[in-house]
Design a protein around this nucleic acid. Structure first.
Lengths: 346, 346
DNA sequence: TTGAAAGCGCTAACAC
DNA sequence: GTGTTAGCGCTTTCAA
């Protein structure tokens, strides 16, 4: 195995007694070629299973046909699903995706950004991560903008001085869905748990949550809002532990993502609290986990396929220099399942 | 944004009054350069934030510094985790990963294989997928071998005529762990569910399961072995539904992966069967799901970090043409958690 | 040390 | 239609 001479168009051209230009033409279909020569060339291509060198092609055309995509952690089903949809859509246009996991490591973000530049990816897609920090780190934004200067960047977070396109979930609309669902079930004592105060999308959820309570004339209780640095099950577990310390417990709990809900439900199970009989749980993202839990989680759902398509569409337009809005918005739906029930609190 | 002239070594060379060769030398450190010129060049590099074109570099050196990786479905935490570890390890050596999801679509597998060749990835990593089919599709293997002819391929499945390197889990050893654990808890009526008869690794698990029963003089019952085409929670759910139809139910159930276990546990919950009091559940892969379930799943665990490292190590050696075994083996450990208990069946 | 120039494999402008 | 050739941006002999 390994090493049986790799073919080039020169080899093909020679054996076919034509010029490399002709070979190139039949490969790309960029110009007319006589039936006869085309036949000959195509036969050889098949014979040798010739695959043109994408690096050379990329170099020559100054387009790599590669997109770079950075996610916080591909093990999170939210990211994985979105990645897949992006891949599917990008594939239709001949693009391949280089994936980088930043693991929320600022240094890695920068390192990877540089790698992508070197690789001459035609656009970078950033899903989550530092760009969504509430307090904008100007130094970082500057880094990003330096890149954006030559390569289009599409993010799923907020903009705030960053020179990118944004395709993001409308956190307000999503939260309205949650609140209305809970209200319709008679809940008024509602808590919100998980998520960091550093993350814009989280902050917006809390903001809207408070607005909605206020609108209904329901008192806002600080002890019903519990943040956590980690968006994993541990975070949810700890938040819920704290919540359960309260004398007057809520009848419903909103978790900022499925992971958090999962952790919360563990804490509840340990405390002998039944979902949804004793307490309702609702969350965001509608990942695979929502379906897996017992009871199944009611969760805010996005049309991931649309989401991915919109990202890629934005990428493509940006690459082609087409005019388009800087900010596009994804609206959510509610996947009502089994973790929410009527308010039973007297 | 977009387009402020991208620099090349020519631009740098010109402004520094040196030749491109010199610039190249300071970038790669491939040869001595006078302190003075080096300074000048480095200053300019920093000034313009110059990043060399990886495509040109790749073309020139005929090495892309890219690895292609094909997984069945990145949404499966098993694949996601392994991907991440590979990325981490590959990054140490300057490699980036292009990820492709085959979604078990044979056509896609071939398409992606071709893309990788074009991209001149230095090696391809295949995790799961058709190469692990029990009945070897000779046509497909031929396809693979044609690739392997010029690019090293590392798989996690069986070989069987495929000209690749394999880093795989020892299914026998893993299953021994499972059986011993169950035996030690007093179980003898043990079922195995999920997984397709088309998949080698699954078949091996069933095989060893039977061997172990036989060894202990326990009767093998066909109705205790239920296969399913899908390795997801639905598969597990349906298998368990069937199992529960039985008059004489097992006291413990082995699921071929966490997903299957999860689905099975749903069916059990619906039937009012408590885990582990009424029935024990154990599975393979120890993904995030194992930790999330209530009760937490006992599952066969691999050291994913080692796994990833071994894959990359194999890749690297293959790229460098170093001699190495065709088959390397990953041994498993058991993560004992809460889903298995002593046998309570009278 | 340093520079000139060939070469990596492909595309596209140009001339025939 | 078809071939020649000049890039694309970098590395690496080969001389000097």
């Amino acid at each position: 195995m390994n090493q049986n001479k790799i073919m080039t168009i020169y080899d093909i051209a020679q054996e076919a007694n034509v010029s490399v230009a002709t070979v190139s033409r039949v490969m790309t279909g960029s110009a007319k070629v006589s039936e006869e020569k085309r036949e000959k060339v195509e036969t050889l291509i098949r014979k040798y299973d010739f695959k043109p060198n994408a690096l050379a092609k990329g170099l020559s055309e100054t387009k790599s046909k590669i997109l770079g995509i950075m996610v916080a952690d591909i093990r999170n089903p939210f990211y994985a699903t979105l990645f897949m949809e992006c891949e599917k859509e990008a594939g239709k246009y001949g693009y391949s995706l280089i994936l980088y996991n930043t693991l929320s490591n600022p240094d890695l973000e920068v390192t990877y950004l540089e790698k992508m530049i070197s690789m001459r990816v035609e656009a970078v897609i950033k899903i989550g991560g530092r760009i969504d920090d509430v307090v904008t780190d100007m130094e970082y934004v500057e880094q990003v903008n330096k890149v954006a200067n030559s390569i289009p960047i599409v993010i799923t977070g907020k903009l705030d001085g960053a020179d990118c396109y944004s395709v993001r979930i409308d956190a307000f609309q999503a939260t309205d869905l949650v609140m209305e669902h809970l209200f319709s079930l008679g809940h008024t004592d509602i808590a919100m748990i998980g998520g960091s105060t550093d993350t814009q999308s989280t902050v917006e959820r809390y903001m809207r949550y408070k607005q909605q309570l206020r609108r209904r004339g329901i008192q806002i209780r600080d002890e019903y809002m519990i943040h956590h640095d980690y968006y994993d099950d541990r975070g949810g577990y700890e938040c819920m532990k704290n919540l359960l310390l309260l004398e007057d417990r809520p009848s419903a709990v909103i978790a900022v993502n499925d992971f958090t809900a999962v952790g919360a439900m563990r804490a509840m199970a340990e405390a002998g609290i039944r979902v949804p009989n004793d307490m309702s749980v609702i969350s965001y993202d509608d990942t695979i986990m929502a379906n897996i839990m017992i009871p199944k989680l009611t969760s805010v759902s996005y049309n991931y396929e649309n989401f991915g398509q919109m990202i890629i569409e934005t990428v493509l337009k940006a690459i082609n220099g087409e005019e388009q809005p800087r900010l596009k918005t994804i609206i959510s739906e509610l996947s009502a399942r089994d973790s929410c029930g009527p308010c039973t609190k007297k």
